[in-house]
């Protein structure tokens, strides 16, 4: 097991109460495996990813849980050791390529800075490596682009440069936080192809965060569904796409645009919106929007439990049906 997250809880302590952004989440990633965290906006996906690298900043705090990476608990490491793992063993790609690069330095300078931090190469080798990295990310004429500033790159190129930055030291695990959300559809496809290629080329595990099931279907091996800080379902990709039982997962799947649904008049949607995390409904946090709810849903929080085919699901109604 490469990464094992157990009972992770991260809260933001705000003036008007404790906001449980990540509430008791567990998942694991094996080597070369891709796990996707899926959910609507504001359900704690990004905070979960940040918590893995212990990057949550005040007023947020990781309350409890373990993040085991290659045998060490990242949450207990001291700062120096953590800095060695960040960027060297675990790379991270952010959602907004426009703002994840420093506007005052060239792409090459940023790559070189990372390489200086994490490798023992000499100056000449580092420059060569920076150019090669950009070449690997499908930059044509990378030796010219290393001297470009972020504002001179298109959105897709910026994201590829950001991926190059994360791939500097060939990490074991790449965390991709909505890597394609800010890009248009054709560029999305490019970035997805690139990520897929890198994953196979470097035999790298990946934690993909997305709200787009199309992207997830392209890349993931396993999927975990989050809602309002809680984990609702964790199963293999096929299982999620074909026989998912949790009403929320079903809702997500139904609200996806298929080519054959275009002729229908309406796209099915999940009614309502994600509840305020400071004021969660009693019982199952999804029950106000759930079409199948029963009285028990309004009273008790469902526990996540193991079902057939190594599948985890948190729903009162699903327990007996598996």
């Amino acid at each position: 097991m490469l990464l094992e997250v157990t009972n992770l809880r991260t809260s933001f302590f705000l003036d008007n109460g404790e906001l449980k952004a990540v509430d008791d989440i567990s998942f694991s990633i094996e080597e070369k495996q891709t796990l996707a965290i899926v959910g609507e906006s504001g359900c704690g996906k990004t905070v979960a990813a940040m918590s893995i690298l212990n990057l949550v900043s005040l007023p947020g705090r990781i309350i409890s849980g373990r993040v085991n990476f290659e045998g060490a608990n990242l949450l207990e490491l001291n700062n120096d050791k953590l800095c060695d793992i960040r960027g060297r063993k675990i790379g991270m790609v952010f959602q907004e390529p426009a703002s994840s690069l420093n506007p005052v330095f060239t792409i090459g300078a940023q790559l070189r800075e990372t390489l200086v931090r994490h490798t023992q190469l000499n100056k000449h080798e580092i420059s060569a490596r920076a150019i090669k990295l950009l070449g690997d990310m499908d930059f044509k004429e990378p030796e010219n682009w290393v001297n470009a500033y972020p504002h001179q790159l298109s959105g897709g190129m910026k994201q590829r440069a950001a991926i190059a930055l994360a791939m500097c030291t060939q990490p074991k695990l790449l965390i991709a936080d909505e890597p394609t959300t800010a890009l248009d559809v054709t560029v999305q496809a490019e970035i997805l192809d690139l990520l897929k290629f890198l994953k196979e080329e470097h035999e790298m595990a990946m934690l993909l965060i997305s709200h787009d099931l199309g992207v997830v279907a392209e890349l993931a091996d396993r999927v975990t569904v989050m809602y309002a800080g809680k984990q609702f379902e964790n199963a293999s990709l096929e299982h999620i796409l074909t026989v998912a039982k949790h009403p929320y997962t079903q809702g997500l799947l139904k609200s996806m645009l298929h080519l054959d649904t275009i002729n229908n008049d309406f796209l099915e949607v999940i009614p309502g919106s994600v509840p305020d995390l400071l004021d969660l409904p009693k019982g199952c946090s999804f029950h106000p929007r759930c079409s199948l709810k029963e009285s028990i849903c309004q009273e008790h929080v469902p526990k996540i439990s193991l079902h057939k085919n190594n599948t985890l699901c948190a729903c009162h109604l699903v327990t007996n049906q598996y």
């Binding site: 990057l55 120096d80 800095c83 960040r86 790379g91 952010f94 994840s100 931090r117």
Partner: peptide, 9 residues
């Protein structure tokens, strides 16, 4: 955030 994720001190 990105430079922290890269592991810069």
């Amino acid at each position: 955030e990105s430079s922290r994720a890269i592991g810069l001190p």
